[in-house]
Design a protein around this nucleic acid. Structure first.
Lengths: 145, 145
DNA sequence: AAGGAATTTTAGCCAAAGCTAACTTTATAT
DNA sequence: ATATAAAGTTAGCTTTGGCTAAAATTCCTT
């Protein structure tokens, strides 16, 4: 392993351009969450849920719409496309898996915040391995005592 | 847990302004790494090691110098301050812990890249719990078969 | 000691993702 | 039905962390 195999965080995102940015992931995940709870999602709801001001929501929704994750027209309601729903499902599953994992190993402080930060950094293979690990740990519940 | 407990990735960084950015962490970690290998670290070396162009290095080093993590003067060599060394040590330990954890649970693809992305998202308490977990898993090595 | 090569810096550009202020559109209440 | 309130958009600013091109400095070779 040479030192030059390293990249900065940003470097990885640029290198691997098919990835959604963490923010895009957050938006899609939250739209998905919200659309389970209520049948209409608006700029408003997202703004509150993500603690981001409305103009920023508008801007990002345009981008997501452009990239085909969302159907949206001005002043309307926000609907995930098929592609968006797929992503949303995955992001929510990923979130819940990480949350459960952290809880299980005994993380107490800022559990939600820790999950939110971490989830964007987890690749699919890793998620799978963590899923397996959760099952194992649940059958060996004394591991943390 | 209300939806409005959520923040976007960026939101967390702004909220918690004492945190170093992922890039700053990468730089400090790499300077620390390099200064173990060689006794003089220059813009050059960092540029190669991080796959970032020299002007970007200069810019970031200025920032790190400003924030007291690094001693630097133009055209000179880059030296971590006490504060910087402390951080560097921690970041390297964190890196190695995450790497070992991922390896242990069976992650194979993009192991280094996965580690690099993930490490910035790990809080101290989580790192501690993962350390404990590693010890446990090593004594139960069949968990992944 | 001079001149070319290598290194570093400066200047200025870009995109992402926030923000505020001001404007427009839509919804609501009398 | 209209006035006001609420919601959403536009315009334009900011910071972060990259980049390239060009200038400056330092190093090395002869």
């Amino acid at each position: 392993m040479k030192n030059s195999d390293f990249y900065t965080f940003r470097g990885y995102r640029i290198k691997d351009e098919k990835l959604l940015s963490p923010s895009m992931e957050d938006y899609i995940e939250m739209i998905y969450r919200l659309s389970i709870e209520k049948d209409i999602v608006r700029v408003n709801n997202l703004s509150e849920a993500l603690n981001v001001q409305p103009p920023s929501i508008t801007k990002m929704i345009k981008r997501l719409s452009n990239d085909g994750f969302v159907n949206y027209e001005k002043y309307g309601s926000i609907k995930l496309t098929e592609k968006g729903i797929e992503k949303g499902k995955f992001f929510l599953f990923r979130h819940e898996t990480i949350y459960e994992f952290l809880e299980l190993i005994g993380v107490k402080e800022n559990l939600l915040e820790q999950t939110e930060k971490m989830e964007h950094a987890i690749y699919e293979e890793t998620l799978e391995k963590i899923s397996n690990l959760i099952i194992f740990l649940k059958n060996n519940i004394d591991f943390n005592s």
